[in-house]
Write a protein that binds this DNA or RNA. Structure first.
Lengths: 232, 232
DNA sequence: CAAAAAAAAACGACCGGTCATATTATTTAA
DNA sequence: TTAAATAATATGACCGGTCGTTTTTTTTTG
């Protein structure tokens, strides 16, 4: 250890950045060192997935290189294929990794308020809007962005997108069904139909939000549907 | 000329494709030869824009290389920057070139039926759906795809998208206003609000269409809004 | 020590963009 | 109306860099 530090110090004399990179590397190594092998690997996998979500959201699939993701995660390029079979497979996993928290968040809202499912849905989307404003309308929804970009060209990712959107839609439908039973949402239209419309209009509104740099489209979308069209 | 043809023939003995490419090249040269300079240049520009629309639709912005577009248009790589300042500027022009026919088509429908603007809008979207089915749900809408892919990263294209969507929205709004005056669309909601909702839901439905490989989402979208929500 | 995992180095292909040169068009001079 | 000079345009080879992936080497582990 003493040898390593002195080595790093001598490097620093030649290159200011070398020291930082070196010490970071040492830190990461010790951070992972005492963990079980499988946990360590799972942790790095998840780090890559998290970085993948963040970068694919803002820069798209083809606009983001593996190098970029790996650098941000401090994982060597050569290691990528220890964790994922290919960029395409990685993309498919990123899609699922992205949607999981949204489904969990919506599920929490739906479980909490047993008396007014429509209000729960409304509160959920209000939370999303706050998050979007916090991010200054960058990114939008990874699902929507990737459906447009690679929905035609990557069969693997298309399937993953189909599954992710399907899972999300099913949960939203169950919430709307509950709201129908509670009498706060019209029952002459199926919950599935309304869930699809809400998701689709929301996706389009997110695209508009991106180019207008304003939350007005998404706010209007929720108002139009949840406070008007879906009402009994 | 005799020399050139015999040269092509000798090439063909070694490589089957060479002959075709060579003769095509000769044809193009003679095709453009007697034209005024400006017309010739405009024609090539438009060829590139048309190819750009087609390829960016299916493969996205970063998924399509300039070389690919130029090859498809039979225009040399070095010539690209005689027509466009950069790939980014090209993209911004492709966006406008893409939306023009849609605006023209919608305008025709709105002008033709003075008595029922809502029916005109409905017929316009029915035409779009037929076109999408003909293309087997590939591509979708270039505006939606690029809003998602580069809406965050290219300011030039963002502005172009903003303008293109704005032009489209304004025309749709004028149609809905007319329908309001004709009494076929509710008047307690502004035409602008409904135009935005229709565009956004349509965009989202197109994304769903891509990954489901079905026209059901776009059909449902039109039905929900034009035959239900927008009714007085 | 052998086997497995991780990381470094290298791979060919392609990216957007530039450049000197070749071709064509226009102007000037005779 | 030519011929020569000049300007404008078109072009393909080429730039440094990055792409996703593979191979080789190093390190870790049992």
């Amino acid at each position: 250890m003493v040898f390593l530090i002195s080595c790093a110090a001598s490097l620093a004399l030649q290159d200011g950045e070398a020291l930082i990179l070196f010490l970071t590397y040492q830190y990461d190594r010790s951070y992972y060192k005492n963990m079980p092998k499988v946990t360590k690997k799972e942790l790095k996998r998840e780090t890559l997935l998290n970085q993948g979500v963040a970068m694919l959201m803002e820069q798209g699939y083809h606009g983001t290189g593996l190098q970029e993701i790996l650098d941000a995660a401090n994982i060597p390029k050569g290691s990528f294929y220890n964790y994922f079979g290919s960029k395409e497979n990685f993309g498919a996993e990123v899609i699922q990794h992205y949607v999981d928290p949204f489904i969990a968040q919506l599920a929490v809202h739906l479980q909490q308020s047993e008396t007014d499912a429509l209000a729960a849905i409304r509160h959920y989307f209000d939370e999303l809007i706050m998050e979007l404003e916090k991010n200054e309308f960058k990114g939008g929804c990874l699902l929507g962005n990737l459906m447009g970009e690679i929905g035609d060209t990557s069969e693997i990712c298309r399937k993953s997108l189909q599954s992710a959107v399907g899972r999300y839609r099913d949960l939203l439908r169950s919430g709307l069904t509950k709201a129908q039973q509670q009498g706060t949402v019209r029952s002459d239209k199926s919950a599935e139909e309304m869930a699809d419309l809400l998701i689709n209009a929301w996706q389009g509104a997110l695209l508009r939000m991106k180019i207008e740099k304003s939350s007005a489209p998404v706010k209007q979308c929720c108002k139009d549907l949840l406070e008007d069209f879906f009402k009994p």
